[in-house]
Amino acid sequence: MTLTAKQRFEDSLAGLGQLAFLARDTFASLFKLRIVWSDVLFQLYSIGVKSQAVVLITGAFTGMVLGAQTYFQFHKVHMDTATLAVVSDAMCDELGPVLTALMVAGRVGAAIAAEIGTMRVTEQIDALRTLATHPVDYLVVPRVAAGFFAMPILVMEAICVGIGACYFVNVNLLGIDPAYLYYNMLHFTHDVDLFMGLTKAFFYGGIITLISCYKGMNCGLGAQGVGRATTEAVVYSSITVLIVNFFLTLILGKIVGLL
């Protein structure tokens, strides 16, 4: 069945409305502390610990390639020792949070949507409801809470590993003086850069888990429905992260006085 443009628009609006209701229910449960901490701990393991490899590799190679590219350009104007400062600033403000969020959206978002979607098509969510358990409290709240906690830690790791990897490339492969490199990095990287990156990470953790839970809980029937929900969870989470990143950069920039 082919949908008309009007139907697609109406479906999108209806989806946004349902997502808003899910967010309302989730935050109501979070603020009223309808939280089972053992479930949150399990999700922290699932979202945080199991994402280590992906995040560390992303952080390291982003730092290395950025370090090399920046050096190639800066070397022309004899600013080699500013390389690490540029990479450090970029990793803290933008690349650390955004690239980590995109990787987590791919790994965690897909897993959440597939797991909850399968529960939906096999009537396990209905079974939860008949056992007097609110699906939002059991399925969504622990994942969103774990997303809020885990993402800043993952981003912090990606930033540290990225800067460390860049330092390694700059000093050991490109022969830049480590003392000036380090001094410039400290001089040009400020607390507000880290604050901006970690604040962004906090929001992205909530966005990715909430969208993925929504896609899982509202997936279509059968294997095709679960597959589609999984794909949409990754795509919509990633796009939302990129869009929200722009607005967060402006808002946080205003708050910390960079604008």
Partner: peptide
């Protein structure tokens, strides 16, 4: 949720948490 505490339900496909 309060009303459902009075109920138990057995599903067609069992719907066990796998």
């Amino acid at each position: 949720l309060r009303v459902r505490q009075k109920f138990g339900m057995v599903f067609q496909g069992a719907a066990l948490f796998d």
